[in-house]
């Protein structure tokens, strides 16, 4: 019975969709890591690939602000 319930669960979760924004092409790993951490702290981080430097967030306004502020601070 437990196995059947698991099968049903797998069927129901064939595809999970989350609307939001993909952020890619970070100039440095440290920038990627910082944005990743910030997004996670805000609770908007949905998924991240540390090898390829891609991350997906459910909201982008604060993330974009954060990236802009970091860029200004670096100059």
């Amino acid at each position: 019975v437990v196995d059947q319930i698991r099968l049903w669960q797998i069927e129901g979760e064939r595809m999970k969709t989350t609307p939001g924004y993909l952020f890619k092409e970070f100039s440095t790993t440290s920038e990627f890591n910082a944005v990743c951490r910030y997004a996670n702290d805000l609770g908007v981080l949905v998924w991240a690939d540390h090898n390829k430097g891609n991350l997906f967030v459910s909201k982008h306004e604060q993330i974009a602000d954060y990236i802009r502020k970091r860029a200004h601070a670096g100059r």
């Binding site: 064939r14 595809m15 999970k16 993909l22 890619k24 949905v46 993330i63 974009a64």
Partner: peptide, 21 residues
């Protein structure tokens, strides 16, 4: 330069992903 792309993230099995592709 960071790029942001609006869209929907799809998480699924590789077998389902093959069908989607």
């Amino acid at each position: 330069m960071v790029r942001a792309i609006k869209g929907t993230l799809v998480e699924c099995d590789p077998s389902i992903k093959a069908i989607i592709l």
